[in-house]
Nucleic acid binder design. Structure first.
Lengths: 246, 246
DNA sequence: CGAGTACTTGAAAGATCTCAAATTAGGTGG
DNA sequence: CCACCTAATTTGAGATCTTTCAAGTACTCG
């Protein structure tokens, strides 16, 4: 596979029976292309669909009362997004394609039906949600407690790590695929200040930049500066009963 | 009931069959008292227990590399907490009692067993998790994008709303039950600045204070100042099949 | 009554934002 | 391939917000 899909992601957490894998594959069988810059769902839209990203990249954001935009999450292939329609019946966040993308739309009833027939998959999907939550908590702590310098470092590492999950050949150099304004909207800074912090990271010889591409020069030090923790690392579902017994 | 428990909270989302309610009641049958100030779980502790709060109040926090504390969540009666042990097998956050409390410890295997036998409850618990996530997203946006003034206003409203959920007789006046340092650790401010912002809210006639108690004088305006949204309001699980058919 | 913790206030330092302008990069039609 | 157009980036200077440090006051518990 070129990019991981939902079944691959879940398969990484948990050995899947053929039956379970087939059910997941069927869940994401439909394709819907979304052009770069296009909006897939708008905040507060009434909807009963959620999405698995198959390729490309998307961003989920909320608008605040004063018009500013908070990018809550970058969505990479294999991620499930819009899960809050399960509960709210409407979208809590706007979903925009950051690159040409393909999503699999999933009716919430489909997902419920899947989890009813395959309780282990329900647990696995819950696990993915829990990881999201842990990431969100970390980001909250970072926004509240760390400097602009640290947050910019953190977002660089985060994007690189997530790109690498889809393509292990990615090394220290990668295309960020974000404008400085988007970075700012993700970590609560103005574009101007993001620019200054990037320059500072360059001056400190932590990264290099050329033509939209970033090179991490000293990953250990950058990670220290960013107070970075990898939340997918500690996930352990091995205690769940194996596929046969389930 | 004096304070809501987990079964009540879920019952608010979804009409429960007798069977389902009994299963929930059984899930939280054990009692473990925790004295004010005591630590129930420490971040990174290996553990397979999660908890439902039965009475009192708790706080979940993370420590950052520089030693500062981020309070990620205030836990009220009926809340489930520590759910990340499902996935990580260890606690992601430290849990401390903010008041004398009683929790029901729940083995993760118990919860899995419950959700396997009662798929609708699995959905309901997922719903609670989704609400938590939406709240966390809002808080992220608030940290990243709103002023100290707005954040202090928001935390006051948040605490009041959650107290009221447990005791509808609570009106405009309530005991905050938090030190200014704790408020600061929740919203990313120093205690000194929290103090100044409280004073400013008083000067603006939005609130009054006396002896640890806060009175909201102009709720509409305070809510506007805080950019506040109530995330439990929009929850709708009515589309799930009723208990009989399930 | 005394000791410790929480609260309060002031002044100065530091971080980040705002505003403004100059420069660069990328995309398009000729 | 060039010329142009727009969006993105870069830099400077001053304003604003929040923190830090320091000191004094109030409250609570034993």
């Amino acid at each position: 596979m070129s990019v991981p899909n939902l079944a691959d992601r879940i398969g990484d957490l948990l050995p899947l029976s053929d039956d379970e894998r087939a059910a997941l594959d069927q869940l994401i069988e439909r394709d819907r292309p979304v052009r770069r810059g296009a909006t897939l769902v708008r905040e507060n839209d009434r909807s009963t669909e959620l999405f698995a990203l198959k390729s490309g990249r998307m961003m989920a954001y909320q608008l605040l009362a004063d018009g500013s935009r908070q990018i809550v999450r970058f969505v990479f292939p294999g991620d499930l997004t819009g899960t809050s329609v399960l509960v709210y019946g409407k979208a809590q966040q706007t979903l925009v394609a950051a690159a040409d993308s393909v999503v699999a739309p999933i009716e919430r009833a489909q997902l419920i039906e899947l989890t009813t027939r395959h309780p282990r998959l329900a647990v696995a999907i819950t696990a993915l949600e829990q990881v999201e939550r842990a990431v969100l908590s970390d980001r909250l702590a970072a926004m509240a407690r760390t400097s602009a310098h640290a947050r910019v470092a953190a977002v660089l590492l985060d994007i690189r790590d997530r790109l690498r999950r889809g393509d292990p050949s990615i090394g220290a150099t990668f295309a960020l695929g974000l404008t400085q304004e988007e970075i700012g909207d993700a970590i609560g800074l103005t574009a101007v200040h993001v620019n200054r912090m990037l320059r500072q990271l360059v001056d400190e010889r932590l990264i290099a930049r050329s033509g939209g591409r970033v090179t991490i020069l000293d990953e250990a030090r950058l990670r220290r500066v960013a107070y970075h923790t990898d939340r997918l690392a500690g996930v352990d579902l091995s205690w769940l009963v194996g596929p046969r017994e389930a």
